[in-house]
Write a protein that binds this DNA or RNA. Structure first.
Lengths: 215, 215
DNA sequence: CCGGAATGTTCATGCTGGCAACATCGGGCA
DNA sequence: TGCCCGATGTTGCCAGCATGAACATTCCGG
């Protein structure tokens, strides 16, 4: 992250990484719209156009930040689930794990609003608004989603009365925590005092868990 | 919306409204970030700075668009609920109404992605990132939310076993449909074929309805 | 040791938001 | 009736941003 020598050389040596770090910092501070090529370059101490040697443009840089943010989010969820004490009843344990993952999700969003928003910012493919499906890269799986889906599957496996696992159940749970996070961040639930906020989170989690069970 | 005479006069006569219309069109086409003062002015055929006579700046214009979009969203929800056939069983009717409202919500988001995103875009208060709580205008109630909350209250009133209506239940339901909408629009559920998308919507609705009942 | 490929820099273009000074119109008041 | 002032638009200007072209420097492999 930091260059070894203090002596400034013409070549930075690790510009790409340095730019990513700066951009992540920017996103952390002010969300995706704050991720600005010139500012990232400025912080690294390099001319703006230098970034073009390593990224196609602002979009590419933002995409990289987004990938990083998604990764950090999933890590936070796993950590939250890891802290959850086990339970003798496997069904209870599965429920607790799902709830813990969701809590981790929302907690990350609240603690790191900028990064969270960057994790799900929309990225215009490019200026050409034409047809051309071209790059049909299926887009790497988002680990946060995988975690939720697996937790729900686990819930279905041990649950009583062992509900059929609907393929869309993961998306439903994800919708709830995602929407909740955004409403808490920029939405109308923004200024909720911590106490009330917690109540909303727990209510939503209850809805998700029992709603999933009933699917 | 349109000026009566074709003859261009120095004074537009209804610039504020014309700008709002143009801005709404822009939002419809490309979401809130597309709402650009200069472009709106250009479409109306007026100089950019003229807009400053009617709006404090881009933020004000966007805020107006947002208000409009929220209103249109609520209208769409009410229309969707109105189309829903009644039921003899009041509990069933209440459930149907809630589901219909939710379907209207998501349907609007999918049909009008730009407007929907504008309806919930985040608006930096102003450049001054200082303290100064100042304008504590409690922000007008969002009708879409009110509709959901009332529907849930209605559900609780006639439901069996008549669950206590949790104050946060509305927020939970809102979270689900909001998150679902965003995941469908820009999120990873973007490219879902209509059939699969419908399945996800219905599953989420089922989760909301039964999850709310279990609260 | 040297020349090409990487990597950075400067310069230029075109977009945006925003401010100040100036121009024009139109309605109310003497 | 006529005139003046405020509302409304305009031109000019500046700063910040994305992006591309042409040029400079450095590093590394043959």
């Amino acid at each position: 992250m930091a260059a070894i020598s203090g002596g400034k050389t013409y070549h930075h040596g690790d510009l790409r990484n340095a730019l990513i770090c700066a951009a992540v910092d920017l996103a952390t501070e002010g969300g995706p719209e704050r991720v600005v090529l010139r500012e990232a370059a400025r912080r690294v101490g390099v001319s703006p156009t230098a970034a073009y040697r390593h990224f196609d443009g602002r979009g590419e840089l933002l995409r990289t930040v987004r990938t990083h943010a998604r990764c950090v989010l999933a890590d936070a969820m796993e950590r939250a689930a890891g802290r959850e004490p086990g339970a003798d009843d496997p069904a209870l344990a599965a429920e607790r794990r799902l709830a813990a993952l969701c809590r981790g999700y929302v907690g990350f969003a609240v603690d790191q609003p900028g990064l969270y928003r960057a994790a799900f910012c929309v990225l215009r493919p490019d200026g050409t608004a034409g047809a051309m499906p071209e790059r049909q890269v299926p887009e790497p799986e988002i680990r946060a989603f995988t975690l939720l889906r697996d937790a729900i599957e686990g819930l279905a496996r041990v649950g009583t009365p062992r509900p059929a696992v609907r393929p869309a159940a993961g998306a439903a749970a994800w919708s709830a925590v995602h929407g909740l996070s955004l409403l808490l961040l920029d939405g109308p639930l923004r200024r909720l005092p911590a106490q009330r906020r917690n109540a909303v989170v727990e209510t939503t989690l209850a809805m998700v868990v029992s709603g999933t069970r009933a699917l």
